[in-house]
């Protein structure tokens, strides 16, 4: 029983070891301890989706996860999807379709969509909109985001 511990985890392919307070949120750990400020904090009660990351391959709210829980886990964040000049395909689709404006919700959408493309049927716009509905965007009205996901889902083909 402790309120502080040392954790080791893999973030975007790199192994990281840090001492953390038990109560430190994974969102704060990624942003402020590791300096991965691409993961954003929009509500800290699990509603807005801005802080979404991949935890062992599935999307998760980093504001509802303790850093200490991620000991031994594999985390992927927006920084792992691609770089300026070498965007990942979800990032590129967002750029092509103007799927972002202020960019604050964007990393959360990109991570959720990465999960969607890996694991979920996205054959209709309704399915796409439903799968996106745990992420709030206040700028785009979602239409260009849906356009981007539609294109990605078609390129992916049906899930087997």
């Amino acid at each position: 029983m402790e309120d502080r511990a040392t954790i080791t985890l893999t973030v975007n392919g790199l192994t990281q070891t840090r001492a953390v307070d038990a109560r430190l949120l994974l969102s704060d750990f990624l942003r402020h301890d590791l300096g991965l400020t691409g993961t954003h904090v929009g509500c800290e009660h699990g509603v807005c989706g801005a802080c979404t990351i991949l935890l062992d391959g599935r999307s998760a709210r980093s504001c509802l996860t303790l850093a200490i829980q991620a000991d031994g886990a594999t985390i992927e964040t927006v920084e792992g999807l691609g770089r300026m000049g070498d965007l990942g395909r979800v990032q590129q689709a967002f750029r092509d379709h103007h799927g972002l404006q202020c960019g604050f919700c964007t990393p959360g959408f990109l991570m959720t969509i990465t999960d969607m493309l890996r694991h979920h049927p996205l054959e209709t716009d309704d399915q796409i909109r439903e799968a996106l509905s745990g992420n709030i965007c206040r700028c785009t009205g979602y239409q260009h985001i849906v356009d981007a996901v539609r294109e990605l889902a078609r390129a992916r083909g049906p899930l087997t």
Partner: peptide
């Protein structure tokens, strides 16, 4: 976009 899409 490139900076906002890459967490930069």
């Amino acid at each position: 976009d490139p900076r906002l899409l890459t967490g930069s």
